[in-house]
């Protein structure tokens, strides 16, 4: 290879490197643009999804006349007084409503966790006559809409003299009335290896002790899921409290919110939205606190 050939070859190499470099630049640019479009697309639809919530948040801070006047989210002035005034705006303070809601929710969640896991343990682990039949019946209750049993249930609680107390809301939860949670837990318990039950049996555990000392501690994710859902459903429940609670002193938060909408005269929408925002706070806190348990998951590594 003489000198000119070598120089030529080097030139060709440089040319190839340049083309490759340009190609890479173009590719990077294309990829960046694709990513940008993807993000714009996602942000746009997230905004549409979140709009009602943002609107609620914004409206809780807007002056009354501005709420329905514009679609815009940014308030002209930040009307924080909606919160402080809203809290005491009704004949009974929201402190009472929150107390009521808390009592009902805490008891309902506890009731659901205990009774449903108990029933689920029986379905998942114990042998008894008619087990399949009862399981089928339990599954059927999942399919019956609440509104079908509403009236017979009301009549029953009326006869028991429980109307205008919290008992109709709370007592059924202690009787494993929620088929959904039973089903959820049955599925979860079935995954727990049976050898653990057998080991516990040899270790001298009764069926109840196996449930209490082995199955329950291993079911934290299922219990957390059930706790979150039953907390959200009970806290936000409007229909059942509406039917069974008459005295405003007994009202739960969702019932109280409705009181802002006046039958006649002017409704205090700003205050209602402010209180609505506050009513979401416990749900969010509860969810954040318990979802860690779900994520952490079960450590079944006592097995192989």
């Amino acid at each position: 290879m003489n000198a000119t050939e070598a120089a030529l070859a080097e030139k060709e190499l440089d040319e190839a490197a340049r083309v490759a470099h340009e190609y890479r630049l173009a590719k990077n640019k294309r990829e960046r643009r694709a990513r940008l479009f993807k993000h714009i697309f996602l942000i746009f639809f997230s905004f549409i999804m979140l709009y009602p919530l943002l609107w609620l948040l914004a409206s809780s801070l807007k002056p009354e006349n501005e709420i329905f006047g514009s679609l815009g989210l940014w308030p002209s002035t930040f009307n924080w007084s909606n919160y402080s005034e809203g809290w005491e705006a009704l004949p009974v303070s929201f402190t009472i409503f929150y107390r009521n809601s808390t009592i009902v929710t805490v008891l309902c969640v506890l009731g659901n966790l205990f009774s449903c896991s108990f029933a689920a343990y029986a379905f998942a682990r114990l042998e008894f006559t008619g087990k399949r039949l009862f399981f089928g019946l339990m599954m059927m209750t999942l399919m019956i809409p609440y509104h079908v049993v509403l009236i017979p249930q009301y009549v029953m609680f009326l006869k028991l003299g429980w109307v205008d107390t919290y008992l109709p809301l709370i007592v059924p939860r202690f009787l494993a009335s929620d088929g959904f949670f039973i089903f959820l837990m049955v599925q979860f318990f079935r995954q727990i290896p049976r050898e653990l039950d057998e080991a516990a049996q040899i270790d001298g555990c009764s069926s109840f002790k196996i449930y209490w000392a082995v199955i329950l501690p291993l079911s934290l994710p299922a219990l957390a899921t059930s706790a979150i859902f039953s907390m959200i459903w009970v806290w936000e429940d409007f229909l059942a409290p509406l039917i069974y609670l008459n005295d405003i002193q007994n009202y739960t938060v969702p019932l109280a919110l409705r009181l802002f909408i006046a039958q006649e005269g002017e409704s205090a929408f700003g205050q209602m939205f402010a209180m609505s925002v506050l009513s979401l706070v416990p749900v969010v806190i509860f969810f954040v606190a318990f979802q860690k348990l779900i994520v952490r998951g079960i450590a079944t590594s006592g097995m192989k």
């Binding site: 290896p193 050898e195 080991a199 040899i202 001298g204 590594s301 006592g302 097995m303």
Partner: peptide
């Protein structure tokens, strides 16, 4: 007699240790 009263103990194939 129930398992616990038989004065025996068992080692399982999967060990069956209590994970928690």
């Amino acid at each position: 007699l129930p398992a616990s009263k038989r004065e025996l103990s068992m080692v399982f194939q999967s060990y069956a240790l209590y994970p928690h």
